Amino acid sequence: MKLKDLRPVKRGGNRTTAFLNVALLGLSLTLGACASKDEVDDLALNDTPPEVLYNEGLALRAQGKLRDAGDKFEELDKLYPYSEYAKKSLVNLAYLNFTRGKYTEAISAAKRFLTLYPGSNDAAYALYIIGQSYFRQMPDITRDQEMTEKAMSAFRELIQRYPDSEYTSDAEKKLLITQDQLAGKEMQVGRFYLKKRNYIASINRFKTVVINYQTTRHVEEALFRLTESYYALGVVNEAQTAAAVLGHNYPDSQWYKDAYSLLTKGGYEPSEDTGSWISRAFKKVNVL
């Protein structure tokens, strides 16, 4: 993009100069009550065209001066809001904040972009930045999983709204990771309740894994823990069903061997009740 000529243009006559001085003085007096001298000076003197500010930001970004580039894009957004260059700057600002690890700011810029320009070609990219920003903040499974849930939501929205986007493939991979993380959290809490012999609470946690996170690596253990929990409650029919579904889907799993052993010691065998919620859950097609 060709930059405009920024050389100063000569003005004619002392009267013109005097008029401009008086005008600037009046502007300073009017704004002095609500703005600092520096702010007034910036407002009066900063008339750099938006395309120049944008290209300066791109040049700083190319030089690796990410903070300076971000400042330049922020300045453009403030001086020329809703312009085409402000639109481009907002996407760049989201990217730069993400690159610098300023995830809250990246999310804010990307969300503002989506609000202002929902039909833009860069909307999928903005959603991807949001998902990635949450993804980078995911904690381990011992802690609250709010960031993980938000990352999953953003990636899922990206996949559903923009299935042909160049970012969709990676979003699908990241989505599986977030689901595995959330399933792991449910398993941790479920095992805690099982250890405390709070079987109803443990069943609810393992049920969540079986219904919502069936494609994760945790589902095998969840079915075994359901066998344990139901058996401990004396609900043998459901314990048998959990073990049977486990054996049918993962016949070589150690979890199935453990479930089979648990039941046979009590004189029972795995047997699927097709009317059980466990059986119905595995007959459903998994949909994102």
Rank of each mutant, 00 (worst) to 15 (best):
K196I: 14
L27T: 14
R280V: 13
L223P: 07
R61A: 08
D5E: 04
S169F: 15
G70C: 12
L262N: 01
Y167N: 03
A201I: 07
T227L: 04
K78F: 12
S133W: 06
K195E: 09
S89C: 14
L226Y: 12
I200K: 01
T216G: 04
I211F: 09
P81F: 06
Y117F: 06
V285S: 06
P163F: 05
F206I: 08
G26M: 01
E105A: 11
W255Y: 14
D68E: 15
V9T: 10
T178Y: 00
T115G: 03
N21T: 10
L288P: 14
T168G: 11
R205C: 03
S261C: 00
Y193Q: 07
L53M: 05
D258P: 11
A94P: 00
T227F: 07
D258K: 10
A94D: 07
E186V: 00
T274P: 15
E84W: 06
E157T: 12
V189W: 00
V287K: 05
A69L: 11
A35V: 01
S89F: 11
E56W: 02
S261F: 01
F206C: 04
T30P: 00
V210Y: 01
G70T: 07
K102H: 12
G275Y: 08
N249A: 06
N92V: 05
D5F: 03
Q254C: 01
L176N: 15
K65P: 00
I159D: 03
V210L: 00
L60C: 07
D164Y: 14
A33T: 03
D144L: 03
R11E: 11
L45T: 15
E228N: 12
G234L: 00
N212C: 14
V210P: 03
V287H: 00
D258T: 13
Q145V: 10
Y82I: 12
Y199Q: 08
L58Y: 09
R280H: 09
Y95V: 15
E157W: 15
T241L: 10
Y125G: 00
V40K: 12
L60G: 14
N97L: 05
S169E: 11
L25W: 13
E238A: 07
M1P: 08
L194E: 14
Y82K: 13
R136M: 07
S120I: 01
P8E: 06
D71H: 07
K265M: 11
A183R: 06
Q132W: 06
Y95E: 10
R112Y: 13
N249S: 10
I278G: 01
S261P: 00
G190E: 07
